[in-house]
């Protein structure tokens, strides 16, 4: 397979890239790692006549440990995230998630920003970022605006960015004291069948906060706050409540049509992995 013809543009600033993408409109695609874009172009699914290369833009690079959290530029690769000492120290589940994406070759060049902007519904990062309470900073109509991952990704392969808008990076707050985050996924084919992520906070052994995000099954990430339902629980009481909550959630979550997995199996996985993530979150938060 060959790539269709296109012009390659290499602007030297975010402003320049944004201006170029605005002028070229629907004829252009922002290009970074290309692990999704070039594939889709080879298969004839995307027919962009111009690629605007964002890789050289220093403004989109870098992982920075700041007070209260970590900033990851949109152009940072999965490989850089999985091997970053700062992220491994402050947000180990994020490093662990990045280390499971696709294969070593995709991780070496695929970027966190590219993954979020491509918005493949069967993908891990947005789900974990949602549970972690991450904020996505984008340049929209020339203004810097923040979104949650659930707001940013509107549906399969659709974000709220319009031509000329760019994702700049992701702000991830450090885990609150007494809390733990867990990411679990089940993968049968090349992409995850189900992704879940939980953030659980405890005080004196009892739950004070809980959030669950479920992805890779529906058109977009579903985030639910379970703090009210699980507050004050621990041990058997926690497990029993988690099982009934997950049965409700798994029964009602919207599913993508035409998946190789049956709806029954998808719901089964949501129930099972969701409960496991919350249990592991409680366990992690207590230690």
């Amino acid at each position: 397979m060959k790539l269709p013809q296109f012009e390659l543009h290499r602007p030297n600033s975010v402003d320049g890239a944004s201006q170029l993408l605005t002028e070229l409109g629907d004829d252009a695609s922002a290009y970074s790692g290309g692990t999704e874009l070039l594939l889709a172009m080879k298969l004839g699914l995307i027919k962009s006549r111009h690629l605007v290369d964002l890789k050289p833009l220093a403004e989109l690079r870098g992982i920075e440990l700041r007070p209260g959290g970590v900033w990851i530029g949109a152009g940072v690769t999965h490989r850089e995230i999985e091997s970053s000492p700062a992220i491994r120290a402050v947000l180990p589940p994020l490093a662990g998630m990045a280390s499971q994406i696709a294969n070593v070759r995709v991780r070496a060049i695929g970027t966190i920003g590219g993954n979020l902007c491509f918005a493949d519904p069967n993908s891990d990062p947005a789900t974990l970022l949602s549970a972690l309470g991450a904020r996505l900073r984008a340049r929209v109509n020339g203004e810097s605006v923040e979104f949650s991952p659930e707001e940013f990704i509107e549906g399969p392969y659709q974000t709220l960015l319009r031509p000329g808008d760019l994702l700049l990076g992701v702000w991830i707050p450090a885990l609150p004291a007494g809390s733990a985050a867990v990411h679990l996924r089940m993968k049968i084919h090349e992409r995850p069948s189900v992704t879940v992520a939980a953030l659980v906070g405890v005080t004196r052994g009892e739950v004070v906060a809980a959030r669950l995000a479920v992805g890779s099954v529906g058109p977009k990430v579903l985030q639910v706050e379970l703090g009210e339902e699980l507050r004050g629980l621990s041990g058997v009481g926690f497990s029993t409540r988690v099982r009934s909550l997950m049965a409700l959630l798994a029964g009602s979550i919207p599913l993508l049509p035409e998946r190789p997995e049956s709806p029954e199996y998808q719901r089964h996985l949501v129930r099972l992995l969701g409960a496991r993530a919350l249990e592991a979150g409680l366990e992690g938060a207590r230690n």
């Binding site: 397979m1 390659l8 290309g34 692990t35 070039l38 594939l39 080879k42 890789k55 490989r79 070593v104 070759r105 995709v106 070496a108 060049i109």
Partner: peptide, 13 residues
């Protein structure tokens, strides 16, 4: 030094 899939990588890069 990083492994890449040359089937989906621009020679220009």
């Amino acid at each position: 030094d990083e492994p890449v899939s040359s089937c989906c990588y621009l020679a220009a890069d």
